[in-house]
């Protein structure tokens, strides 16, 4: 009894393939042996065959036109280069934003001591137009700021314009330390925003690149 039920379960899932004559001979004989004893499976085979027969009544429709290719349809492999170009562009964008992110984080971690050196490359990357004007100013500020404990941020435009190598100015700068600190606070939050923006941009570029790469692979 239990054996018969087991045979029923084992045969039942092969009935469609059996009806199609697509079972290997060993399995086919086993299914036939079960069919001889199981009315339910015999009825199932009848139904599945009737379904297949009914489906085969669907008419074959004539194509509405010829799909033969003309020379114009063939001479247009222009669809392939754009994805490749886009892929390369997104790859470059991912690398660029990642480098920018690393530079911004490095600047942040390295802190005020190296801020002058870091300012030049980071500044030139985020705002290339401003770079030539800022570089000499930064150098001057570095000279002026050497004895000052408060860090100067030439690129923030706070200490930079005022920095000239006179003792009076040096004193004034020390007095302005709280203001500079407030400026640094603003600078830090700006830096954070820039870091997050670079990270998000790198992530988006990498994501878009992955989607495009998968699509073009699947399409080929």
């Amino acid at each position: 009894m239990a054996l018969a039920w087991l045979q029923h379960l084992l045969s039942h899932r092969h009935l469609s393939a059996y009806a199609d004559g697509e079972l290997a001979s060993g399995l086919r004989r086993r299914v036939e042996g079960h069919l001889a004893r199981c009315a339910r499976c015999r009825a199932e085979v009848e139904e599945l065959q009737a379904t297949a027969r009914t489906l085969s009544l669907l008419p074959q429709e004539a194509p509405p036109r010829s799909f033969a290719l003309g020379p114009d349809q063939v001479a247009a492999p222009a669809r392939r280069p754009p994805p490749a170009l886009a892929l390369r562009g997104l790859q470059a964008a991912t690398v660029a934003f990642s480098v920018l992110l690393v530079a911004l984080v490095a600047w942040d971690v390295a802190g005020p001591a190296t801020s002058e050196q870091a300012a030049a490359p980071a500044g030139s990357q985020s705002a290339p137009a401003a770079a030539p004007r800022e570089a000499p100013e930064g150098a001057g500020a570095a000279l002026a700021a050497t004895p000052t404990p408060a860090p100067t941020r030439p690129d923030m435009g706070l200490a930079g314009p005022q920095a000239t190598p006179t003792p009076a100015d040096r004193r004034r700068q020390t007095e302005e330390a709280p203001a500079a600190e407030a400026g640094e606070e603003t600078g830090r939050s700006l830096l954070r925003i820039a870091q997050v923006a670079a990270g998000v941009a790198a992530g988006l570029a990498a994501g878009a690149w992955a989607v495009l790469a998968i699509r073009s692979r699947r399409g080929s």
């Binding site: 899932r13 092969h14 009935l15 469609s16 393939a17 199609d20 697509e22 015999r42 009825a43 199932e44 085979v45 009848e46 139904e47 599945l48 009737a50 379904t51 297949a52 009914t54 489906l55």
Partner: peptide, 27 residues
């Protein structure tokens, strides 16, 4: 095999529900 088996069984149920297929016993 399994896609055809499952698809055909489902279509059989659909046709039966529409009264377009007599039951296996009747067949």
């Amino acid at each position: 095999k399994s896609r055809i088996a499952r698809g055909r069984a489902r279509l059989r149920d659909y046709l039966k529900a529409q009264g377009l297929l007599p039951s296996g016993a009747a067949l």
